[in-house]
């Protein structure tokens, strides 16, 4: 009887966490989607080939968010591919004056991580790091080593950058932090440094070592995602 109660309680706890996680899940930012469509719309007249490429990038990005965003784990390579699509789509929105770097070194590309676990940090880096009037940068690096994934993400800050806590980025970051706590409890490190000129995120999470079922399409073909910018 007690055992049964324990199980029931565990089940309830599990469901509660799943519900919270569903609430905290990354959702595509409609503003990003509309601005990207607007840029592609302009590109069609200027550079049809790049416009087509961009639509393919956007389709792959959407497919990942829509079909794999609710998986428990995805191969880390899939997440990296997604970030590559995102970064290349952001790239068409500003000039080459913005210094964007995306360095990836995956020794265990098929190890599992929860999907979209890095998305909020990368999105924030672009949202607050890019300036159209002064030199700016977004540097992202992702490594896997000894069963762990390390994300280092930093961006320049500008005179016009709003304090994070007051902008929507603050909500995004706090949701991401809660989600990490639910997913990994103590087994992760999220270090955020907000200096005068640079905003830095360091994330360290465990890799799920059980090999993930290969996702049939795209993932294999899109290996080029490693050296993107």
């Amino acid at each position: 009887m007690t055992k049964h109660l324990d199980e029931l309680q565990q089940q309830l706890e599990y469901e509660r966490i799943q519900q919270q996680l569903a609430f905290l899940n990354y959702q595509i930012n409609p503003h990003f989607l509309m601005n990207t469509l607007n840029n592609i719309h302009a590109l069609i007249a200027i550079d049809p080939e790049q416009a087509q490429d961009s639509i393919v990038e956007l389709s792959r990005l959407l497919r990942y968010v829509l079909y794999e965003g609710d998986h428990q784990f995805v191969p880390v390579q899939r997440e990296v591919d997604f970030l590559g699509h995102y970064i290349r789509l952001m790239r068409i929105r500003f000039t080459d004056d913005v210094d964007v770097r995306f360095d990836v070194e995956l020794t265990q590309p098929s190890a599992g991580i929860p999907p979209l676990v890095m998305a909020t940090f990368v999105e924030n880096a672009f949202k607050h790091g890019v300036s159209y009037v002064e030199p700016s940068f977004v540097h992202i690096s992702i490594r896997t080593e000894e069963g762990r994934l390390r994300l280092h993400c930093c961006n320049s800050k500008h005179s016009h950058s709003k304090p994070l806590a007051k902008s929507s980025g603050g909500v995004g970051l706090s949701n991401a932090r809660q989600r990490l706590n639910l997913l990994f409890r103590d087994n992760h490190v999220l270090h955020i440094e907000d200096s005068e000129t640079v905003f830095t995120v360091d994330l360290n999470i465990p890799l799920q070592n059980k090999p993930q079922p290969a996702v049939e399409q795209a993932a294999g073909k899109d290996k080029a995602g490693n050296e993107i910018c």
Partner: peptide, 13 residues
């Protein structure tokens, strides 16, 4: 518009 392509499209219109 701060985005170069968006500005270009607006100007074209």
């Amino acid at each position: 518009d701060d985005e170069p392509l968006a500005l270009r499209q607006l100007v074209a219109y």
